[in-house]
Design a protein around this nucleic acid. Sequence first.
DNA 1: GTCTATAAAGCGATAGAC
DNA 2: GTCTATCGCTTTATAGAC
Lengths: 189, 189
Amino acid sequence: MAGRRTDTRERIQRVALDLFVEQGYEKTSLREIAEKLEVTKAALYYHFRTKEDIVHSLIEDIGSSLDEIVAWAGEQDRSVRTRQEVLRRLSALIQGRFGPVMRFMQENQPALKELHAGHVLAQRMKSLFTLLGPDDADPADQLRARLALVALMIGNNPQFLDENPAAGSSEVALQVALELASPRSGAGT
Amino acid sequence: MAGRRTDTRERIQRVALDLFVEQGYEKTSLREIAEKLEVTKAALYYHFRTKEDIVHSLIEDIGSSLDEIVAWAGEQDRSVRTRQEVLRRLSALIQGRFGPVMRFMQENQPALKELHAGHVLAQRMKSLFTLLGPDDADPADQLRARLALVALMIGNNPQFLDENPAAGSSEVALQVALELASPRSGAGT
DNA sequence: GTCTATAAAGCGATAGAC
DNA sequence: GTCTATCGCTTTATAGAC
């Protein structure tokens, strides 16, 4: 049952992400991850050179998906419809297997800030922001673009600072995000 | 010059908050705080019993200010005007000396989660949320209430995941927050 | 591919002198 | 109120056997 494994690398990623989300990156030790997997620390080091490398592998996955969205949007015209479709795709991504990674990113900014993988990701997020709220747009629109993204994240993670289930529905979150990316009366792009 | 001090406790709070915001709670050691103050670790322990106690003292300050706002709002009628005034007062608080504390809270959720002081604060935030978006309100309105608060925080901390100065103006943030707390066409309280 | 054992460093916290 | 010195523990990471 616990004999030869070929998926240990992925099991490490899964368990590590679980613990990172549950108790934070810094508070999660390799010993803890190893224990939960019922292997030793040394086994972890066979698959990942450092603790940071685990995070790196986690973020690389989501990174390419984000790149796809940015690339797709680059081929479209800069319309409200395009921005809304970007949000819809992001919502699907967050509701899918990247939700926990997103949440980890959201809640562990200090850790990511000095992690290199964090900077790579920050650049990708900046592309997304520029997509949703161009640098030459109304400052309020830029802020709304960022809030639209936050809405999607909170929708997936109700306990932003609370845990009211009603405010945490993904459908509601997408609805509010779309409305934030839509032109108000007397404005638009 | 560096002789007798009577404000050491406050100096510790100030320097600790600076470092907590800059590099995160976990990554900031008492040794580092002591070095920046040019005292020893042991001196820190004279003023605070634990590292956690420093955070506790930081959060207690802002806590009473939040309580005042909640109490004031409790005396008003539950109108849009009241909610907007709450946001205005929160904005002033965040723009004032509580900005860094707010940012620390926002960026160190995993650390706060297991810090007791964090739970006390979470309860206060919940009161605020309930104030801005009652539990029996439209789920979308509840989410918007949370986003209004996020807007104020991002306004004070542009580098949410980026650092575009235009999107980080406190006035713009307040404007967007107010609009999020206002009834849309066909809805209201 | 996983193990035991350990190195090297940093951490929060305390004791006791001054 | 601040110091020196240190305790006890945990951490990341490595060496080398199997």
